[in-house]
């Protein structure tokens, strides 16, 4: 697509965006084990959103594996590029600036991740790493997969990470596969777990 002659919408308009945290290497979760857990979450309204249904794609070796679909977004045990993690994708528009929206997303994701970690039906199977986070933009109009998008988004992401994580030395790598959506991996050199990282009190949003 040649969009060069037109003004793309500002990245700040980005609504369809996802964050993903990864299971640590020694986690032994079979995504299928989460199916009853997600169904229970629907019954008990355990996580944010109007929870609709569970979709089982555990037969796929890559991409979403087991999804908890909500009206506002999708919680997915996601296996894109073969790496299992929990991803939350915002699918309906949220109010606030992109920075504020990302923070809401982060909190939604982390509370679901923490619930999975402590679910009695998944004893010792789930632990999320706190040193690696993917941010995926599912909107090729607002956020094409280009170095420019990364440059524009980077300060917002850095600010988010400084607010929600104790880590400081984040590096950012963009997935450059042709055609793929904009995906940036933020990595820190520590070996922190999400439970310690996410326990950090958030400082007020000042950007």
């Amino acid at each position: 697509m040649n969009l060069a002659t037109m003004t793309p919408p500002p990245v700040d308009d980005l609504q369809r965006v996802a964050l993903k945290v990864f299971l640590t290497n020694d986690s032994e979760l079979d995504p299928r084990d989460a199916i009853p857990v997600f169904h229970r979450w629907i019954q008990t309204h355990a996580v944010n959103g109007l929870l609709i249904d569970v979709a089982d794609y555990a037969h796929l070796p890559s991409g979403p594996s087991v999804l908890l679909v909500a009206h506002e977004g999708q919680y997915a045990l996601d296996r894109t590029h073969g790496r299992l993690g929990l991803q939350y994708t915002q699918t309906r528009p949220l109010d606030g600036s992109l920075s504020e929206r990302l923070e809401v997303l982060w909190r939604t994701l982390v509370s679901a991740a923490r619930l999975l970690e402590t679910d009695p039906a998944l004893p010792g199977l789930v632990r999320f790493a706190g040193n690696e986070i993917d941010c995926i933009a599912q909107d090729r109009l607002c956020a094409p997969n280009t170095p420019e998008t990364l440059a524009t988004l980077r300060p917002t992401l850095e600010s988010l990470l400084s607010r929600v994580s104790a880590e400081t030395d984040w590096s950012f790598t963009r997935d450059t596969e042709p055609g793929a959506p904009f995906r940036v991996t933020a990595k820190s050199s520590s070996s922190a777990f999400l439970d310690t990282t996410a326990a950090q009190p958030a400082t007020p949003n000042d950007d």
Binding site: H59, L60, P61, S62, G63, P64, P178, A180
Partner: peptide, 16 residues
């Protein structure tokens, strides 16, 4: 395709 399904990234890579 199991159950006729493939993920977006699989389809994109299949196109490649």
């Amino acid at each position: 395709l199991p159950l006729g399904d493939l993920s977006s990234d699989q389809l994109r890579r299949l196109a490649t």
